[in-house]
Design a protein around this nucleic acid. Structure first.
Lengths: 171, 171
DNA sequence: CTAAATTAAGTTGTGTGCAATGTAAAATCG
DNA sequence: CGATTTTACATTGCACACAACTTAATTTAG
């Protein structure tokens, strides 16, 4: 730790590294694959903001609603498996949604450990207003459907690999 | 793990909607393009965790270090423009990095509004230990370089579109 | 059938991420 | 040159996201 790292021969006024070491340096923001992923994700969540605010939803809450509009009732763990979120994220999120009157949370009678999440009438009725959201977002992305489908496939591939890698996380 | 294609066949027992409304319903998690993006981003940040923890860095902090290993000194606003993060995120993040002894923050003499961020000796020396990170991450992604490059291009396209859309955000 | 192991949620603490607002310095305008 | 506007950060408040841990219920092993 005491060895002064490669600060020999700083050439330009701006670079801390030599031309050689920069030539194929993997420690460059421009060379990172994960950074654009991270940046796009943040931008996407931000883009959803104005679309979801009138519905009283955040983006993760919208994802929960998507699942509940499909499935009458889901346990917290099932939501977490689908959304790749753990109970530390979901429990407070679901409590906020319950306080907002969108969902109900009740212990499963069959298995008292499980908490079943289902929609209230207000939650079901919100679906109508939400139908406009995917269109509006598609417009913001301004992308060819084919291109989006391929991107989606590629991302799902990565989800598969990273989820496997993540196997032993206590949910 | 249910395959996306199989969703349409098991409507009756589980669905809150009719077969017709599901047939081309954009309000399905499986039909969302942004969700895999969001999920991959979370998984990626989580995957970086074990690689960066020995360096005393979080993923966003690692991104700041990448920029500072390239550029001797950057203002908060320049970091924010590169990383698509605002001062509300960066200011506390940079303070934590300063407390950890990795960076210095000092007002620009030329323009007292700007805060210039630069590396300490410890911050520069951390670069050596970080050289192993990109390789380790590439291994986790287990992906073809060509394939990754194309994915990167596609994501950068989206960054362009969503950043433009985001034009009027007070940084 | 009981003790140990496992599972499902919840809790706590830390670190983002951003909208909205505040503050001070610099630039611009009249 | 003085007033107004703009710019650059900082602050506040809220909502994730996750590691680590706790609690309670179920399952499994003996």
């Amino acid at each position: 730790m005491t060895t002064p790292a490669s600060q020999h021969s700083k050439i330009s006024s701006d670079s801390a590294l030599t031309a050689e070491s920069l030539a194929q340096d993997h420690l460059l923001l421009q060379q990172q694959i994960c950074f654009p992923l991270y940046a796009v994700s943040n931008l996407v969540v931000k883009s959803y903001g104005p679309l979801l605010k009138p519905l009283g939803l955040t983006y993760p809450q919208y994802l929960v609603m998507l699942l509940l509009w499909q499935h009458q009732s889901l346990a917290v763990g099932e939501l977490g498996k689908q959304l790749h979120l753990d109970s530390g994220t979901l429990t407070p999120l679901l409590k906020r949604m319950e306080n907002n009157g969108l969902i109900k949370r009740q212990r499963s009678p069959a298995d008292e450990r499980r908490v079943l999440v289902s929609l209230t009438t207000a939650g079901m009725e919100l679906r109508q207003a939400a139908t406009a959201v995917p269109q509006a977002m598609a417009c913001k992305l301004a992308a060819d459907p084919q291109w989006l489908l391929q991107l989606q496939d590629n991302l799902n591939l990565l989800i598969g690999r990273l989820s496997q890698d993540d196997a032993g996380s206590g949910n």
